[in-house]
Each structure stands twice: as structure tokens, then as C-alpha cells.
């Protein structure tokens, strides 16, 4: 959370956080590890995207800088291809979580 704007008090400190624990699995450690693994996926994807952008820039230009990466705008085709790449990544890596031993009973 940010400290307030120096010029004026525009927010309040007395907001109310959720009162319910979010533990859904056998124990909190398991929930926490799951969340960590999912969060790592988002960090991984950030790196993957950087790779994609850098590869593109190197191919087009032979060199690359941090500024060029930050400013990069994927084309529509790239966006679509990278989205597909992301979804395949998610299915490959997180698909395991659906193996809960109830498939024989549950339709797809």
C-alpha cells in the first residue's frame, strides 16, 4: 500500500480486510504451496515474454536494449500466437491439478 499523497489525504487507513481464511485443501501449507506454484507461473511467463520480444528484436535488428524491450508493441499476429503459447503453457503445467481421481465419475 502506498503512503498518502503528500499534498492531501485522499484515502483512509480504516479499510476492513477479509475476515475469512482461505484454506481450501488439507492444510494451509498445501494451499500456500499451490499459490506459490501458480504465482511462479506468472513470473515464468514474464520471462518467456521477454524472450519472445528479445528474439523478435534480435532477428529484426541484430541488437536489443532494455528500452526497446519495454517499448515493444507486438503485432496482432504476435499477440495471438503468444496468447496461444501462454494457454498451451498453462494447460501443460497446470493440467496436472485436474487429476483428482474422480474422472471416471465426472464427465469431461
Amino acid at each position: 500500500m502506498t503512503e498518502g499523497s503528500k499534498s492531501k489525504a485522499t484515502h483512509r487507513e480504516d479499510f476492513v480486510p477479509p475476515q475469512t481464511e482461505d484454506v481450501f485443501l488439507d492444510n494451509a501449507a498445501l494451499d500456500n504451496v499451490m499459490s506459490t506454484v501458480i504465482a511462479l507461473g506468472s513470473e515464468f511467463w514474464a520471462l518467456q515474454k521477454r524472450m519472445n520480444v528479445m528474439e523478435t528484436l534480435l532477428e529484426e535488428n541484430g541488437s536489443v536494449s532494455k528500452e526497446m524491450v519495454e517499448a515493444y508493441r507486438p503485432t496482432e499476429e504476435q499477440s495471438a500466437a503468444w496468447e496461444e503459447q501462454r494457454d498451451r503453457f498453462i494447460n501443460r503445467v497446470y493440467g496436472f491439478l485436474q487429476n483428482t481421481g474422480t474422472d471416471s465419475k465426472t464427465a469431461g
Binding site: 506468472s42 511467463w45 514474464a46 515474454k49 519495454e70 515493444y72 496468447e83
Partner: peptide
């Protein structure tokens, strides 16, 4: 930042 944008894209997909 691009990383922030990419993380959000991941969240969207996930």
C-alpha cells in the same frame, strides 16, 4: 512495466 503486463496476461489466461 512489461513484466507487469505479462504477469497480468498470465493471470488472465490462468
Amino acid at each position: 512495466e512489461m513484466d507487469m503486463e505479462s504477469r497480468l496476461e498470465f493471470t488472465q489466461g490462468f
